[in-house]
């Protein structure tokens, strides 16, 4: 096993991540504006930006899902209990004692078990919850008619609740970037695409020969 700098986040993945980041921040900002928490944007612009960003994000997700399925990248998110407890324990205690992170990134397993399960939950539950309720909200006349009554209230309530949950995810996600050696070190792989990974001899040989641009 050797530690090498390897292309872990390919161009599309980085594009997907950062576009998604911008759109989610826009959606949170405009959404809570529409909700009445702030008046930094007038209602018309807030709604237009919110709807536009949401439609953009949905399109991006269509591409991202297609990409995950065709490239096999989905395997990074398969949940595992193997080492999950260790990672959790590390964030709860070990980190304060200066212990080393228990997880070593692998070429086909770039997320630690806690990360993988968190991202999977985000993709399988929070994201669908927000976009399904968002579409129901946007297109309520098609399923509830012109007089939706209580139905629209429920959708609005659910949509708002999920938005709070996503905001909480964003806070934790950003905070965890500070838990490595430095914030920059954690963010750089998502910019350059390269991260340090322990490779098997076979993986190293394969990359050296067939993907020389993906290994440094």
């Amino acid at each position: 096993m050797t530690l090498r700098r390897v292309m872990l986040f390919t161009r599309f993945e980085r594009f997907w991540h950062w576009t998604q980041m911008v759109l989610i921040m826009l959606l949170l900002f405009t959404g809570f504006g529409i909700h009445g928490f702030h008046n930094l944007l007038d209602f018309k612009n807030a709604v237009t930006l919110h709807t536009g960003s949401a439609l953009g994000l949905l399109l991006l997700w269509v591409f991202a899902i297609f990409w995950h399925l065709t490239t096999g990248t989905w395997r990074h998110y398969v949940p595992t209990t193997n080492g999950l407890l260790k990672v959790a324990k590390f964030y709860a205690f070990g980190i304060f004692k200066g212990e080393r992170h228990p997880y070593r990134k692998a070429y086909w397993r770039k997320h630690n078990p806690l990360q993988a399960i968190s991202y999977l939950a985000l993709k399988l539950f929070l994201f669908p919850a927000i976009w399904i309720s968002g579409l129901l909200y946007l297109l309520y006349t098609f399923w509830a008619g012109a007089a939706p009554g209580e139905a629209l209230s429920w959708v609005a309530m659910f949509h708002t609740a999920v938005a709070f949950a996503i905001l909480m995810f964003v806070i934790i996600h950003v905070y965890l970037l500070t838990t490595g050696h430095s914030f920059k070190e954690h963010v750089m792989p998502m910019i350059s695409g390269f991260d340090e990974v322990e490779l098997t001899a076979e993986e190293e040989a394969y990359l050296e020969k067939d993907e020389p641009g993906h290994i440094r």
């Binding site: 909700h35 009445g36 007089a147 629209l152 609005a156």
Partner: peptide
């Protein structure tokens, strides 16, 4: 009815 911007829980 629920009016976005006016109503909330």
């Amino acid at each position: 009815f629920y009016l976005p911007g006016r109503d909330s829980y």
